[in-house]
Design a protein around this nucleic acid. Structure first.
Length: 493
RNA sequence: GGGCCGUUAACUCAGUAGGUAGAGUAUCUGCCUUUUAAGCAGAGAGUCGCUGGUUCGAACCCAGCACGGCCCA
């Protein structure tokens, strides 16, 4: 029978057969009492005799990943959220009717088993089934058990299959979840309030990037998906919430690559009565804590590089990094003319309206950033590229800002906040001029934000941390798509 | 946007002088009461990404397109 049908047709016809015999294919009454992982942890060390004496009754449920039928008995592995457990089904224990039905279950079906724990001849902790039940029918064949699912496209498009079959992928996302949980606990323990601010904004501010535009019909108004939550979080500082954070999505209408997904997860946090030095110390401590929690230590490998997160981390001024890491002579960039020549020499074409600050940053990206493998805070950025940061007390052309680099990638960006409303307005106006001159990414004017500052924002420092990048780092992933459950894909043909 | 690579059974992959497609797993049938990449015997399963071209004949050569991967902008 069924010889000439496709696998899908075969499965459907089997499912119909089971249903015709009165078996519900999608019932919701089975309730497992135990998880595979817990059973192994609790009883994995008991001997065969101890298990037999204890007579531990369990009810488990999970997806049937393998099945080995041998006449009047069968072995199968069930996979639940905690791991796998073997079940042993004997005709003389479950009865002929149930056994005959069980023989027709497919790999991929969700199966429930009640029975007693024992140890097989080869030593594996196993449930001797007293009762077997089909919990949920699967109409599709699973990927191959030995090689798993490798096709990257299918893994991303059908992530559920990837999670089902590739246990290391499950582990990876559990790590990501633990990273976020640890950050959340860390900040909450220090009095930070977790808040939610608008993802749809009338003025897309807080960063320099191209936004996604949308439209609200009811009010006939244009809206933008936020590129950062920064300006709203700082309004909360004005309101009296002295420590706030948000972990959530931001959106940037830019390239799609192994490092960029159009929507990505950011942590932003703001702290009154603190400056950028305080934030560097906090960041160092927080990320080290996350590493200990998720990796069990401060040393790990990322893409072949040994990384050590032991504090204190190196702190270096942006310009010094160009010399010490980038190998430039200060003469090659201190003056705008020489800076342009150096840039051209290195294949960085200065754009027409570009000031020295922006060019310096570009040079840094090419020359220094990829070399910053060990955790490094680069600080004292040009004011030109930092319209929201507080000016340095000692040099009005610089701001009290840092970026954190690990594994050759930017992980965080923080600064002492600019709370002088007049300076903020002037900075916005400068940005508006740049925009008019053709800089698509320049920051727009935000009068409402300046208004808030006019009421007085306490001195503060704030920071954004790329959560996807942190997840990449701690899971040794080369592509951001590996750490996003459902990365953006073009529609299938 | 550009370059390189990939797309063959449900999955993992083979497939060269161009001659109508193979393996393992999975599936189906039979046997099997401690297996675990179970085993033994047998069977079925394909729009070779899509469209066009060259050719007596195309999975294979050419062009365009789609989707994906890596690199560059």
């Amino acid at each position: 029978m069924d010889k000439k049908r496709t696998l899908l047709e075969q499965r459907r016809s089997k499912a119909d057969g089971l249903r015709d015999q009165g078996l519900p294919l999608y019932g919701n009454t089975f309730r497992p009492t135990h998880l595979a992982g817990d059973l192994k942890e609790a009883h994995g060390s008991l001997t065969e005799e101890e298990l037999e004496g204890a007579g531990i009754g369990v009810t488990v449920a999970g997806r049937m990943m393998t099945a080995r039928h041998m006449g009047k008995v069968a072995f199968a592995h069930l996979r639940d959220s905690s791991g796998d457990i073997q079940v042993y089904v004997r005709k003389d224990r479950v009865g002929e009717a149930a056994f005959n039905l069980f023989k027709r279950y497919d790999i991929g079906d969700i199966v429930g088993v009640s029975g007693v724990l024992f140890r097989t001849r080869t030593g594996e902790l196993t449930v001797m089934a007293e009762e077997v039940e089909l919990v949920t029918k699967s109409l599709r064949p699973l990927p191959e058990k030995f090689h798993g699912l490798k096709d990257v496209e299918t893994r991303y498009r059908r992530r559920y299959l990837d999670l089902m079959v590739n246990l290391e992928v499950r582990e990876l996302f559990l790590k990501r979840i633990r990273i976020i949980q640890t950050v959340r606990d860390y900040l909450a323990a220090r009095g930070f309030l977790e808040v939610e601010t608008p993802m749809m904004q009338t003025i897309p501010g807080g960063a320099t990037a191209k936004p996604f535009a949308t439209h609200l019909k009811t009010l006939d108004m244009d809206l933008f998906l936020r590129i950062a939550p920064e300006l709203h979080l700082k309004r909360l500082l004005v309101g009296g919430f002295d420590r706030v954070f948000e972990i959530n999505r931001s959106f940037r209408n830019e390239g799609l690559s192994t490092k960029h997904n159009p929507e990505f997860t950011m942590l932003e946090f703001y702290m009154a009565y603190a400056d950028f030095h305080d934030l560097m110390a906090l960041t160092e401590d927080m990320i080290a804590r996350v590493a200990e929690e998720v990796l069990g230590g401060l040393r790990f490998t990322y893409q072949g590089d040994e990384i050590d997160l032991s504090p204190p981390w190196r702190r270096i001024r942006l310009k010094e990094s160009l010399v010490e890491v980038g190998g430039l002579d200060p003469k090659e960039f201190e003056e705008f003319g020489s800076l342009k020549r150096t840039a051209r020499r290195l294949g960085v074409d200065p754009e027409e309206m570009e000031g020295p600050g922006k060019l310096l940053e570009k040079l840094f990206k090419v020359l220094v950033e990829p070399k910053l493998i060990q955790p490094t805070f680069v600080h004292s950025y040009p004011v030109e590229v930092s319209p929201l940061a507080r000016r340095s007390e000692t040099d009005p052309d610089l701001v009290d800002r840092f970026e954190l680099f690990i594994g050759g990638r930017e992980l965080a960006n923080g600064f002492s906040e600019l709370n002088d409303p007049d300076d903020q307005r002037a900075r916005f106006e400068e940005q508006v001029r740049a925009k008019a001159a053709g800089d698509e990414e320049a920051h727009p004017m935000d009068e409402d934000y300046v208004l808030a500052l006019e009421y007085g924002m306490p001195p503060a420092a704030g920071e954004g941390v790329g959560i996807d990048r942190l997840a990449m780092l701690f899971t040794d992933s080369a592509s951001i798509r590996e750490v996003i459950l459902f990365p953006l894909m073009r529609p299938e043909a």
